[in-house]
Amino acid sequence: MSVITELGGSFSPGRVGAMVLRYIYLLRSSWPRVADLIYWPTVQMITWGFIQTFVSHSSAPSAPMVAAGSLIGAVMLWDILFRGQLGFSMSFLEEMYSRNIGNLMMSPLRPLEFVAALIAMSLLRLAIAIVPVTALAVLFFGFNLWGLGLALAAFFINLMLTGWAVGLLVAGLLLRNGLGAEALAWSLMFILMPLTCVYYPVSVLPSWLQPVALLLPPTYVFEGLRALLIEHRFSAGDMAIAFGINAVLFAGGLIAFLMLLESAKRLGSLLQTGE
């Protein structure tokens, strides 16, 4: 009942803005945090970009695929997915580290406003990370991610929805289990990585595993990227399927977060966020 009440309650953009401002001040006060946002995507892009350059010049059978930019494009889209989830989770972990969750939940801030602020910070962190990386990709390898046009918008929305759904689940588990579940913020997306077919088509997977891969929205995004760059074909139908699955996952993640929050309140674990 409380979950239903929360979903239907009043929503204050002002409180969301106040939380976003808090996270911006935290980010601005620590240059290592900003440097970390830019460093890892840049290292990944350059490393895989040079691998792509090497393979395209030394392996003729694979040249059409890698020369089309599908490898470096997949690296950058994967980083959008991972950074979207991590940006959400890291802002939440900031509150866990400072033992501030209990204070926030006793304030007028509503859980949905808290989630909206975490989503906004996920987008801000991602922008800091991905904008310079896309410029470097053009400079080093002549690959323009923005050149994907409207397809990029479809890819981006689906990847972010998946990242936020996973972030909501992780946040709920952190509330319920404390920082003992912190590893999930870093590892859960990598556990899903082999099934989302980031660097290879679904057909590479064993036949019994392919239906499982097709239940994950990012699979459609990475398959769509390869189809766009190699075959010059964009499947709006596949993106619609991915969006439908994402809608279910995001709603499920939100409900799980609210239910785990209620459970944490009942058990009194909001003030005990240690291991």
Rank of each mutant, 00 (worst) to 15 (best):
I255W: 11
V138A: 14
I191S: 10
L86V: 09
F50P: 11
M96Q: 11
M193A: 15
G17Q: 09
L175R: 02
E95V: 07
P32Q: 10
A68V: 04
P211I: 11
L184S: 08
M96S: 06
N100P: 00
M121R: 03
I4E: 05
A213E: 02
G268C: 08
A153G: 11
M239L: 12
L126V: 03
W40T: 08
S62A: 12
L27V: 02
W146Y: 15
L37V: 06
M105E: 12
S207C: 07
A153H: 10
Y220L: 05
G49Y: 11
T5I: 13
I24D: 05
F114R: 08
L192Q: 04
L271D: 12
G172Q: 05
T134F: 15
N103R: 12
M65D: 13
L168W: 00
I119K: 07
P61A: 13
G268P: 02
A120L: 10
P218C: 10
Q85C: 06
N177Y: 15
R99Q: 14
A183Y: 14
T53H: 08
M160E: 06
I46F: 13
S62Y: 14
I51P: 00
T162K: 00
N103H: 11
F250P: 01
P32T: 08
A240D: 02
L214I: 09
L258A: 10
L159W: 13
E95C: 03
G17H: 06
S58N: 12
L267P: 01
L112V: 09
L249H: 01
A137Y: 09
A183L: 11
S269G: 12
N103G: 07
M19R: 04
G252M: 10
P201M: 02
A185Y: 02
G224R: 02
Y23K: 01
A151Q: 10
D238V: 00
N246P: 10
L26V: 07
G73L: 04
G244F: 15
R226E: 09
A242M: 02
I101S: 00
W78L: 07
G253K: 00
L175A: 08
I241S: 00
A181C: 11
T219I: 04
L188I: 14
G224P: 08
W164Q: 05
A60G: 06
L195V: 03
V66G: 00
A127R: 14
S10H: 13
L104E: 05
L258N: 07
F50L: 15
I101T: 01
R266V: 12
L215G: 13
E231G: 01
L136K: 01
G84K: 03
L112Y: 05
R15L: 14
G253L: 05
P217Y: 09
R226K: 15
N100T: 08
S30N: 12
L261E: 04
A18V: 09
S91E: 06
V75N: 01
L136F: 05
L150D: 07
P211M: 11
L169P: 05
L270E: 07
S235L: 07
L136A: 07
V212I: 14
A127N: 12
V204M: 08
A154Q: 02
L27S: 05
I119N: 01
I24R: 03
Q272G: 09
Y199C: 00
L71M: 13
G167E: 11
M45D: 04
L145I: 15
A67F: 04
L249T: 01
P61F: 12
W208A: 14
H57L: 15
R83L: 11
I80Y: 13
T5G: 15
V204L: 09
V34H: 04
L270S: 02
Y200C: 07
